[in-house]
Each structure stands twice: as structure tokens, then as C-alpha cells.
């Protein structure tokens, strides 16, 4: 009887999983199909494999191809991720390990900004960046992330630091470590799962970001992958779905690789620190 339930459970999970992942598999398979076949069959196996959609799609239709958009995405995302993780670690350490005046005030404000909608600050942010001359540069992403403007990561790291015993710090003080050395030599080596989770999340979110890029980045030369894809969607009026799909597949590859490399850290990680994704 119980084995029957197990079988039922397993087959449900499998079938449901296949339905769930089918769109992604279909996208990948469609990108290798000849164009007329994309909208004529639900078969996942192409009648013949073509890679011309990748070659032509990569070149792009205008002056700039996807090599530019990919490079741009990395130039935007990597510094943003590094700045976010560094600033969030330092701020989280301050909150988790020290008692200072105004701490409760700023902690509450941090929790409040967790729920502050981006939509309500986007217009003044745009105007501010315009006055600072940052529009159409990646500074619009990098500089705010240097100032720990992602409360989600601060909160996550605070929760993690709280789980590390304070005795560690205290014995380091006895050994003559200053507070910064305690962070870099004692706490950070133990925080790898939390740091990896934060970096992976920020990578994926920034890589996939569309709204902020659309507003802050205007010249095609500087388009990250999300805007490049959107442009190919516009100009083609969808006559070359095969190329659009091939580039869509390429655009999700970095996220897929990072997700699968790091998933043991981070599906567990967010579950234990207890916050959204």
C-alpha cells in the first residue's frame, strides 16, 4: 500500500515536472528547428538540426550583434554583483555584531525598504542619474549597489551572521584581531554558502533585469542582452522566430550554468535564511 502511494507520488511529481519544464525544453528544441517547423509541430525532436539560426541571430540585424550585447551584460552584471556582495557583507556585519545608537532605527528602515516598490522611486532616480550624468552608463547599476541598496541581501547575511557563534569573535579579540580582521579572517570563510547565494541571486536578477535597463540604457551600443533581445523582437516583426529563439536560448545559458553549479548552496540557502526568491 505505501509503495503504491510512493509510486503515485513519484509519477505525479514526474509528470508535473515535465509539464513545467516543457516550455524550456520546447524553446531549446525550437531553436534548432528549421523555421517552418517551429509553429507546425509539438514534436521536440527537429526533423533536421539547423544551427543557421544561431549564426545569423548572433550577427544581429543592425550595427551591433549579440557579441556586443553579451559583453555588455557581463560588463554591467559582474561589477554590480561584486559591489552588492561587498557592500552588503560590510553592512550586515555592522548590524549583526555591534550595538550602536540609531541601530534600531536603521534596521527598521532597512526592513521597510524591503517592501518599498521600485515603481515609486524610479522617476526621481532617473532624474537624479540624469543630473549626475550617469544615464546610458552602467554606473546607474553599479554605484547604487556599492551603497548596499539591496536590503534583501543585507537581511539574508544578517540572519546568517547571527547563526555564527560570537565566541569566535571574542577569542579573536583576545588574539588581538581588530573588528575588520574578524570579519575577513573569521566570519567570511564560514559564510561561503550565504555569499554564494547572494552573488547568484544578484547575478540572475541583474542579468534578467529588463525594466531598469530599458529606462537607464538608451544607446544600442551599450544594450545588455535583455534590450538586445527585445530589439530583435521589435525589428523582425517576428518573421525570424528561429533567430529570436536561438538568441533567447543563449541568453539564459549563463543563468542556467550558474544555477546548476550553485543550486546546492542556494535552494538550501534561501530556505534556511527564510526569505523570498
Amino acid at each position: 500500500m505505501t509503495s503504491l502511494i510512493r509510486m503515485g507520488r513519484l509519477s505525479f511529481l514526474t509528470i508535473f515536472g515535465i509539464i513545467l519544464i516543457y516550455p524550456i525544453i520546447w524553446l531549446i528544441s525550437a531553436s534548432f528547428k528549421p523555421l517552418p517547423e517551429i509553429f507546425s509541430t509539438v514534436n521536440l525532436i527537429p526533423s533536421r538540426f539547423v544551427i543557421t539560426s544561431y549564426i545569423n541571430g548572433w550577427k544581429g540585424s543592425g550595427q551591433f550583434g549579440f557579441n556586443t550585447f553579451f559583453t555588455n551584460s557581463f560588463l554591467l552584471v559582474v561589477p554590480t554583483v561584486i559591489a552588492t556582495v561587498l557592500s552588503s557583507v560590510i553592512v550586515a556585519y555592522g548590524f549583526a555584531r555591534f550595538r550602536f545608537p540609531t541601530k534600531n532605527l536603521f534596521f527598521s528602515l532597512m526592513i521597510a525598504t524591503l517592501m518599498l516598490p521600485n515603481a515609486v522611486i524610479i522617476i526621481p532616480s532617473y532624474l537624479l542619474f540624469r543630473n549626475l550624468g550617469w544615464l546610458d552608463t552602467y554606473w546607474t547599476f553599479i554605484i547604487p549597489s556599492m551603497f548596499a541598496t539591496y536590503p534583501f541581501f543585507i537581511f539574508m547575511l544578517i540572519q546568517f551572521f547571527r547563526g555564527l557563534p560570537r565566541d569566535l569573535d571574542e577569542s579573536a579579540v583576545v588574539d588581538g584581531c581588530n573588528s575588520f580582521k574578524i570579519l575577513t579572517h573569521i566570519l567570511l570563510p564560514l559564510s561561503k554558502p550565504a555569499l554564494v547565494s547572494a552573488a547568484v541571486f544578484q547575478f540572475i536578477w541583474t542579468w534578467n533585469d529588463f525594466f531598469n535597463s530599458l529606462i537607464y540604457i538608451n544607446s544600442v551600443k551599450k544594450y545588455p542582452i535583455s534590450l538586445g533581445l527585445r530589439m530583435s523582437l521589435d525589428t523582425s516583426s517576428i518573421s525570424n522566430w528561429d533567430q529570436v529563439m536561438a538568441m533567447s536560448v543563449l541568453s539564459i545559458v549563463p543563468c542556467l550554468i550558474i544555477f546548476f553549479l550553485a543550486q546546492r548552496y542556494f535552494v538550501e540557502g534561501i530556505a534556511t535564511t527564510g526569505i523570498k526568491g
Binding site: 557592500s87 560590510i90 553592512v91 556585519y93 555592522g94 548590524f95 555584531r97 555591534f98 550595538r99 550602536f100 545608537p101 540609531t102 541601530k103 536603521f106 532597512m110 547604487p144 556599492m146 551603497f147 548596499a148 541598496t149 543585507i154 573588528s179
Partner: peptide
């Protein structure tokens, strides 16, 4: 502690 938190306060 306040020094560590200062980037957040500015941001």
C-alpha cells in the same frame, strides 16, 4: 558598527 553600516545609510 555605525561606520560599517554607513554605506547603507548613505545609500
Amino acid at each position: 558598527g555605525l561606520l560599517y553600516v554607513s554605506p547603507f545609510i548613505i545609500g
